[in-house]
Amino acid sequence: MAAVEQALTIDLRAGARARRRRLVNRIAEAIAILAAAVAVAMLVWVVWSVAERGASLISWSFLTGDLPIPFSPEVGGIGPLIVGSAIVVGIATAIALPVGVLIALFLEEFASNWLRVPIQLAIDLMTGLPSIIIAIFVFSALVYGHAENGVAGSLGLAIVMIPLITRATQEVLRLVPSDQREGALALGASRWRTVVGVILPASLGGILTGTVLAVARAVGETAPLLFATGIFGRTLQLNPTKAMPNMPVQIFIWSESPDPLDHRRAWATALVLMTLVLVMSLVARIALNWSRRNTTR
């Protein structure tokens, strides 16, 4: 009984120090919220300005139609650009995905220390490589002396994508609990069996996510495609060994044009491209959540 009475006399109200602590806390919180708000605001601003200027041209015929003849008053369409972008990026993904994943597997599962460090460094440097340099490399190696072609552009994009996919895959491989690895090894599985049978399936979602993000990044890359894809050609091009019209390069061309209608076309194409990238990022997000649920307990 006495203990209870004594407990009641303890003062639990905030003292001076506690009040100061609370103030500092509030200020720090406010700054953080402000910073986050600025970032969101910038994004909203960009999205809004693109949408505002580009939305008026968007229509089914714009999305599917052939490119307009230069200086034509007809709006035309960007069908060949979308298909071109899809093919170029598709080929790039087909190259970058296996290469990127294999590099990641090698680094995480097989490489000894003295091999891992330099390769990791190279991959990190590749991530920071300005894309215009990749463009010049691809131009000198594959385009110069040949015709401009889609495959060359794909290769350039693949070089952009590989470090992204490798990085993402490494992250998700590290996420696979080491006891999964041990569990497989303890059953008499070889290293390679363990990787293929247990680790890869467990990290599939994460690899997919990384790939989608890399695709989203590549689909907007302009520089590697600048020298590798044609400026001319208005109609659908399905052969990747030929020059391929695509979205980012066309946006660039239209925005350089003196024709005000071309500016509007550029904005509308930008809106399409941006929507695609946003949707893909969203898909990646969902895929990641899905894979997390499946690999971790």
């Binding site: 006891d179 303890a186 059953l187 008499g188």
Partner: peptide, 20 residues
């Protein structure tokens, strides 16, 4: 070591079933 582990199995501290 693979032959060794095939004859001498192991169970770990945390249950680690495969996500299958």
């Amino acid at each position: 070591q693979i032959e060794v582990r095939r004859r001498i199995g192991m169970v770990f501290q945390r249950p680690n079933p495969f996500p299958k």
